[in-house]
Design a protein around this nucleic acid. Sequence first.
DNA 1: TTCATAACTTAGAAGGCTATTC
DNA 2: GAATAGCCTTCTAAGTTATGAA
Length: 689
Amino acid sequence: TSTKPQPSSLKRKGKKLVKTETTSSESNDVCTGMKSKKDRSIAKKIKSEDYVVKQESDSEANKGSVEEDEEDQWWLSESLENQSCNWETLEHNGVCFPPAYVPHGVKLKYKGMDIDLPPEAEELATFFAGVIGSQYESNPIFVNNFFNELKRSLENTPYGKLVVNFEDCDFSPIFEYIQQLREQKKNRTKEEKLEEKKANDALVERYGYCLLDGKKEKIGNFRVEPPGLFRGRGQHPKMGSLKAFVPEDITLNLGYAAPVPQAPEGHAWGNIICDPSVTWLATWHDSISGNAKYVFLSMSSKLKGMSDLKKYEKARELKSCVASIRKKIEAELLDDAMPVKQRATAIWLIDRLALRAGNEKGEDEADTVGCCSLRVEHISFQIKPDPENRKQKQYFIIFDFLGKDSIRYYNEVAVPKVIFQNLKTFATSAKKQRHDPLFEDLNSSMVNKYLNGLMPGLSAKVFRTYNASYTFQQELQNTPAVGTMSEKILAYNRANRQVAVLCNHQKTVSKSHSAVMDRLHVRLKVIKAERRYIKRELESRNCKSLSSSSSSNEESGVSSSGEDCVKSEVKSEVKSEAKSEVKSEEENGDSLDSSQESDSLKKIHTYSTEKLVKKLEVLGGRILTLKNNILDKDENKQTALGTSKLNYIDPRITVAWCKKYDVPLEKLFSKTLREKFKWATSVEQCWTF
DNA sequence: TTCATAACTTAGAAGGCTATTC
DNA sequence: GAATAGCCTTCTAAGTTATGAA
């Protein structure tokens, strides 16, 4: 009999322990003889909890004893040292398979002829009909790859030689069928929706959680990716190819004593291993790239939380030594050796522009670059006179390239002369062509190796985290000491936006953006107009009280005093403003409904003066909030704030800021974010990055 | 040293859900 | 109560980095 391998013997990659596959029903006994005392006690606990872990509601989860809560607060006790072993026991129910394809029988038309497709081809055609209306439909790479797949699926059928031209294919019957299904889905009854929710909840209950060292943890992506046409970003050469689902390719990672879950009917797991040196629960291969895909724990889990905390602590460590690192890099910019000069210049860009490292990419991937993989064609040079001192020159580099996800990076940057000269040398040396690499003596692993020598654990991406968090903290200093909630949140979002701009996090402007902005402007005008009506009403009441003593003067149009002059001036100004307001509303076609207008006017006349003054205050507040809202929205139309909030900004900065400015955390972090950053919520308001 | 790749983080899009508006 | 907007979550593509083998 073998003895249970200790985790330390499993830490090296490639030395994974392969378990003998057993099903849940025969499970627990198989390894009994190998269990340690601790394992046995955990196995018992797991059994008593019925293994299939139940989803707790928020309130139920919070009912745990103080002892349990403290146990959950790993950040108070766990060491952040690198550990070769991520867990001692791990149990889960495997992964959730996508439903098998059910043929619908709707025909493809080819040259007007009905084609009765075999199931595989029909599934492919249905995948394609699913992208009709999207940008992929008209993308020649996508269409070509898809059509090759379709032809391949028809090779050994009577249609193999008939279906040869994509242009002769008519997918509209299948498209219409899909639309019908979508419509049906939209029009589901309450009962149907409830039924579906129940079924989904059951899946989440079965597959959505695992037991890691006896503690229930949420799993991130327990559903295996369903088959479909690959939707690569940018000009990906493989887009439109079939991304297959191969059930037998799935490997599960389970604790040594854990029961092996039953594979779905008719299938078997590809492999079962026990490797506590990794955090994934299941893996398979992507049929397009051959790359591994994994099932990991959710971001609210202890393992992910620890990894996050480590990341930010590493960035803080960089903060403490960034000055000396920069000094060293600046000296190396002038080094005679080309590899050193190139490395220093690249690191300067990674640090100051928050560029990604930039690994080399393959032929079968989209042509995107990062710092080390920049090519001559991606930068241009410009020298301008310094506007403040015409005798001085300003040196500019214009960056224009496609970065991660084929998002364009365009930036005109004023740089020190030495950076300008270095880049110019790199771009023009050895008769380089446009498509040649700018840093031919450099790659990302050389940069990282060097950085690691300057500070243990330092790599290119730590600069991005450090600069993002540091910038955010600095920008937050612009928060008004005294301000309304909306002003504070605007300040927060502005700081967030600075970071998003630095990291070049973009989103496509929504189709409805301009319409939404128009509507907000109209709403603002309406409120302003209402405020003016009230002001006018108050003015006239004031005047009436005055006029009782000087009505003759007013009637004759002659003011008895300078004060009256001013009042009438204000009055006429308000009148004309209100008029122009209404006029511009009419021009926009969005004026107040006339009945509404007169209603609100009527009401205003019946209100007491005190009530009107109060209403005036309320409207003032509303106008301010709306103005901030408009500003925020417009500045934000193209910038995605979420990515930096999720991955780059140390959440402790937000927590401390919220405490300092008395802003509820819920205003800034969604439920998932609060769960993810549980470890950050206990910091004091004086905490700094 | 180079190459391949395992294992993880980071990323935008899509679609669902919910609050708001009419 | 329906329509709409926008927030939030899910999905999975696309990066980075460390490590082992050749």
